[in-house]
Amino acid sequence: MLPPGNFEVLEAKDGVEGLNFIRQEKFSLIMLDFLLPKMSGWEVFQQIQSQPELRKIPLVIMSGRKEEVTEKLPEPFEGFEFLGKPFDQKQLLGAIKAAMTKAKQPRPEPTPVATPTNNNGATATEAIATTSSADQIQALNEKIAVMQAEIDGLKKQLAQVVTFIKQKIK
């Protein structure tokens, strides 16, 4: 789908080979599938993000299941462009352009979190994780409540349809 140009495309058969290519070559763009054998796209992404020189390379993450990406990387996506599968040439070129633009924008370097302990003996990292987990649990519980209400509504509709069908059969 790429237009003719003065570039070379290298394709990796799995995440391990892809990460090795990324570390060895000077790429001007990385197209990363989120689901890969041996090492997932998520793991490759984490490796890219951990190395400042690799973080500067424009990145397009592709997946046919956006929910798997957003589960690990919440929107809005910063530092990379997401491209949902299937896609056409226009979408591909748009994603590449957007990734190039995002790569030029300044981004804070990931900073390691210090691990001082609080009065309970928990580290700051553990406290942040607990707060984050509590927030995530609350958000999930809210989603569950909404989904349960939808399920109850669907059960009611199904019961009505079954009753209607039974009446028509008689």
Rank of each mutant, 00 (worst) to 15 (best):
L2W: 13
P3T: 11
G5M: 10
F7W: 14
L10Y: 07
L10D: 04
L10H: 05
G15W: 03
V16H: 06
E17F: 05
N20V: 00
I22C: 08
K26V: 03
K26Q: 10
F27S: 00
I30L: 03
M31K: 00
D33I: 00
F34Y: 03
L36T: 03
L36K: 03
P37Q: 07
K38S: 02
M39D: 07
G41W: 00
Q49C: 10
K56M: 15
K56Q: 15
I57C: 14
I57K: 14
P58I: 10
M62V: 07
S63C: 14
K66P: 06
E67N: 07
K72C: 01
P74V: 00
P76M: 02
E78P: 05
G79V: 02
E81Q: 13
I96Q: 15
A99M: 09
M100N: 06
M100W: 08
K102V: 13
K102S: 14
E109W: 02
P110G: 02
T111A: 13
P112V: 11
V113I: 12
A114V: 12
T115D: 13
N118C: 12
N120L: 10
G121L: 05
A122T: 04
A122K: 04
T123Q: 06
A129C: 07
A129F: 11
Q136L: 08
A139P: 06
N141M: 14
E142Y: 14
K143A: 10
A145S: 12
V146P: 02
M147I: 11
M147V: 09
Q148S: 05
Q148F: 03
Q148P: 01
Q148A: 04
Q148T: 08
A149I: 01
G153S: 15
L154M: 13
L154C: 09
K155G: 04
K155N: 08
K156P: 06
Q157L: 04
Q157F: 00
V161D: 12
V161Y: 10
V162D: 06
T163I: 02
F164Q: 15
I165H: 13
Q167M: 08
